[in-house]
């Protein structure tokens, strides 16, 4: 990733923003959709996910931590000795996050 025209600051910015979003917002959402709904503590038909500003919130909630994952996973695998394949690894990690962003946009527009 290093070089004269390094894109690292760009990815690092997304990584950092994703870290903040994941730290503040994700745990309560795991409690809500992982426990409260499936175990019947509360009932919901998902209508709130069709509110426009909730969709904007969901876009931020879902996409930014994906870039956080991409950055951490990429460097963790590098540190675990996969440096030899770091280029395809970067494509899988950062490309995965970009694909996730497109998929999120598509789902939020279509529901």
């Amino acid at each position: 990733m290093a070089g004269k025209n390094s894109s690292e600051p760009f990815w690092w910015g997304l990584f950092s923003a994703g870290g903040v979003v994941a730290a503040f917002l994700v745990p309560i959402h795991i409690i809500l959709t992982g426990f409260a709904l499936p175990l019947g503590w509360i009932s919901d038909t998902g209508m709130l996910y069709r509110v426009w500003w909730v969709k904007i919130y969901l876009f931020v909630l879902i996409t930014l931590p994906l870039y956080h994952w991409a950055h951490r996973f990429y460097f963790a695998l590098n540190d675990m000795g996969l440096k030899v394949i770091r280029k395809p690894l970067a494509v899988v990690c950062y490309g995965g996050a970009v694909a996730g962003t497109v998929a999120t946009l598509w789902v939020l527009i279509s529901v």
Binding site: G46, I62, P65, L66
Partner: peptide, 13 residues
Amino acid sequence: IAIFLVVLLVQIY
């Protein structure tokens, strides 16, 4: 965290 968010997205879908 990423897997959870993908599952959440599938649920919204």
